[in-house]
Simulated scan of single mutants.
Amino acid sequence: MVNKLLRWGREGLVLLALLGAVLLVIDWWRAPQLPATFNSTPLHTLDGRNVSLAALSEDRPLLIYFWASWCGVCRFTTPDVSRLTEEGENVMTVALRSGDDQKVTGWLAHKKMTLPVINDADGRLSQNWEIGVTPTFVVLHKGAIVSSTTGWTSYWGMKLRLWWARLS
């Protein structure tokens, strides 16, 4: 019986290692790219601010969260991003093809969330970043991509990525 449990444990660890390797390869394949016009592209938030992602990431790591109101997985990750914002983390979000400014603002109000949002109504900004999946999380520090991942990630996964970027 003990040998059987050890064998199952070993096979479980191998399966987890293979799954982790597959997920790393998928993240590498889907990794966004900094656009050529990254530093010179003016961006506007829903609240009327003009922002530069390079400037926002200069002093401390910036979590850029590409999401959509129609994205099923985003319904689980957006509250965690909102929590990071409330805690004072450096966060900027990009609403991908979620409607005009009024519609995105209404969606956030309905969900009782306050986020700094750049509305990418036509998807051009996300296309320049080569974003193909929502949600996509990009950690930018000093104008360079430190890490990225797609799909669901936990609150602690986001916190860990930001912490790791501070060390680099």
Rank of each mutant, 00 (worst) to 15 (best):
M1C: 14
M1R: 15
V2T: 15
N3I: 13
K4D: 07
K4S: 08
L5D: 11
R7W: 06
R7H: 11
G9D: 09
R10D: 02
R10T: 13
R10N: 10
L13P: 01
V14L: 14
V14D: 14
L15S: 03
L16G: 00
A17Y: 11
A17D: 05
L18G: 11
L18Q: 13
L19E: 03
A21H: 06
A21S: 12
L23H: 12
L23Y: 08
V25F: 08
V25Q: 12
V25S: 06
I26T: 03
D27K: 08
W28T: 08
R30G: 00
R30A: 05
Q33E: 12
Q33K: 13
Q33Y: 01
Q33F: 03
P35D: 09
A36Q: 14
T37D: 15
F38C: 02
N39V: 09
S40F: 00
T41M: 08
P42Q: 10
H44I: 03
H44D: 01
H44V: 04
L46Y: 04
L46S: 05
D47N: 15
R49S: 04
S52P: 05
L56Q: 14
L56Y: 08
S57P: 03
R60W: 00
P61G: 07
P61C: 07
I64F: 02
Y65G: 07
Y65W: 08
F66K: 09
W67N: 14
W70C: 12
W70P: 05
G72V: 10
C74R: 12
R75S: 13
R75C: 04
T78C: 01
T78M: 13
P79T: 10
V81R: 07
S82H: 10
R83I: 00
L84I: 07
E89H: 14
E89V: 00
N90R: 08
V91Y: 05
M92T: 02
M92E: 12
L96Q: 15
R97S: 11
R97E: 15
R97K: 15
G99K: 09
D100C: 02
D101T: 01
D101G: 06
D101F: 00
Q102V: 15
K103W: 05
V104T: 06
T105V: 04
W107N: 12
A109S: 12
K111F: 04
K111A: 15
K112W: 04
L115I: 03
L115E: 09
P116N: 09
V117T: 10
N119K: 13
G123V: 11
L125C: 02
N128A: 09
E130T: 13
E130W: 07
E130Q: 14
I131E: 08
I131S: 05
P135V: 03
T136E: 06
T136G: 02
F137I: 03
F137W: 07
V138H: 06
L140G: 05
G143E: 05
G143N: 09
A144Q: 13
I145P: 00
I145W: 03
V146W: 07
S147D: 14
S148L: 00
T149H: 10
W152Y: 15
S154D: 10
Y155P: 01
W156G: 06
G157H: 11
M158P: 02
M158T: 09
K159C: 06
L162Y: 08
L162P: 01
A165L: 01
R166D: 03
L167P: 00
L167R: 15
L167H: 12
